[in-house]
Design a protein around this nucleic acid. Structure first.
Length: 283
DNA sequence: GCCCAGGAGTGTG
DNA sequence: CACACTCATGGG
C-alpha cells in the first residue's frame, strides 16, 4: 500500500539515523525502511512530500507514520521559542529537518534500557534479535517489536543468549514488574510523576527515564543527559556538575521544548563536532 | 589488541 | 552531594 504524507521540514538522515530510534535502515538510494508497530515501512522524501509504502498496509498505516514523525510539530514555532538561546539561535537553522520522533511507549522503554553502555549499531542488533526471537512475523526476516506478554516468556538466560549481557536481567525485571496496561496508565501522568514511575523500574535511571519520556511518551520538556550531552554542555555553555544540576539548567534555559534543544545539541556534538563541522558554537 | 559505548545500581566518604 | 566500583560485550 502506497500513500503520501505532507511534512516539512524533514531530513530523514538526521531524524532516523541519529540514535533516537533504532529500527530504521538507510538504503543506498537514500530512502529508509523500518518497522512501525506491525507495519514494514519504506519512505522517501520528495520536497515537502514523503512517499511511503507500507506492508501489509491498511487503514492505520498512514496515521502510524504521521504520529511517528510528529507531523503536528511546528518546527518554525519551536525554533523561534528556542532562539532566545544564543548558542542555538545561530546554528539550529541547519538542523530544521531534525525532528523528534514518537515511538511506541513500550518499545521505547525497552530500547533505551538496552541502550545503556552500548553503541548505536549494537543497540540496533539487540533489538532486532529480540524482535526475531519474540516478535510477531510481518514478512520474511521482518518482525514486529515483541509485546510485553510475549517478552515475559523469555528467561534471563534466554535473553543473555541473544547478546544482551547484563541488560538481560533488567529486561526480565521490567517485564515482571509491568502489568498489561501500566505504561498505558502512565500516559496520563504529569512529567515528574511519569519520570518517577519509570525510574521505579529496574534498569531505568534518569537518562533512560528521560529518553522514554521524550521519545516514547512524547514529553518535549524532557532533556536526557548522556556523555555526549555532558560534553556539549561543558563545551558550549561551560556547565558542569551533577545530572540533576544540568537538567535544571536545561529546564530553565529551554523550557517546554528542551527535548528539541537536546536533540540539536546531541546531533551537533556527536555527528558534527567530530568532523569539525559544528552548526552550533558559543562564539 | 585497544577503546568506548545515548548507564544503572550499590556502596562509601 | 560527590566519587568509586562493578556489571558484560561487541563495534569501530
Amino acid at each position: 500500500m502506497r500513500f503520501t504524507l505532507e511534512i516539512d521540514p524533514l531530513d530523514l538522515d538526521q531524524t532516523l539515523g541519529c540514535g533516537q530510534t533504532f529500527r530504521w535502515r538507510r538504503l543506498p538510494d537514500g530512502s529508509w525502511t523500518g518497522v512501525l508497530s506491525d507495519q514494514l515501512m519504506t519512505v522517501r522524501r520528495n520536497g515537502r512530500e514523503l512517499h511511503a509504502e507500507a506492508f501489509p498496509g491498511g487503514a492505520g498505516a498512514r496515521d502510524l507514520l504521521a504520529e511517528h514523525l510528529r507531523v503536528g510539530d511546528d518546527i518554525g514555532r519551536i525554533q523561534r521559542r528556542l532562539a532566545s538561546d544564543p548558542v542555538l539561535r545561530r546554528g539550529m537553522g541547519g538542523l530544521r529537518g531534525l525532528r523528534i520522533v514518537k515511538l511506541d511507549e513500550w518499545e521505547c522503554t525497552v530500547s533505551f534500557v538496552l541502550a545503556t553502555y552500548a553503541n548505536i549499531p549494537r543497540i540496533s542488533k539487540m533489538i532486532e534479535s529480540l524482535a526475531a526471537a519474540y516478535g510477531k512475523r510481518i514478512a520474511p526476516g521482518i518482525h514486529a517489536f515483541p509485546t510485553v506478554g510475549r517478552l515475559r516468556r523469555a528467561s534471563p538466560g534466554d535473553l543473555r543468549r541473544l547478546g544482551l549481557g547484563y541488560r538481560a536481567d533488567y529486561i526480565h525485571g521490567v517485564c515482571a514488574a509491568l502489568g498489561e496496561d501500566d505504561l498505558g496508565r502512565m500516559k496520563g501522568m504529569g512529567f515528574e510523576e511519569l519520570r518517577a514511575g519509570l525510574m521505579a523500574l529496574p534498569g531505568i535511571g534518569d537518562k533512560v527515564a528521560d529518553c522514554a519520556s521524550l521519545f516514547g511518551f512524547g514529553r518535549l520538556e524532557a532533556f536526557p543527559i548522556d556523555v555526549w550531552m555532558e560534553r556539549a554542555l561543558e563545551r558550549l555553555y561551560r556547565q558542569k556538575g551533577s545530572h540533576a544540576r544540568l537538567r535544571r539548567f536545561a529546564s530553565e534555559r529551554f523550557g517546554a521544548y528542551a527535548g528539541y534543544a537536546q536533540e540539536y545539541l546531541y546531533y551537533n556534538e556527536r555527528v558534527l563536532a567530530s568532523d569539525g563541522a559544528c552548526a552550533l558554537s558559543d562564539k
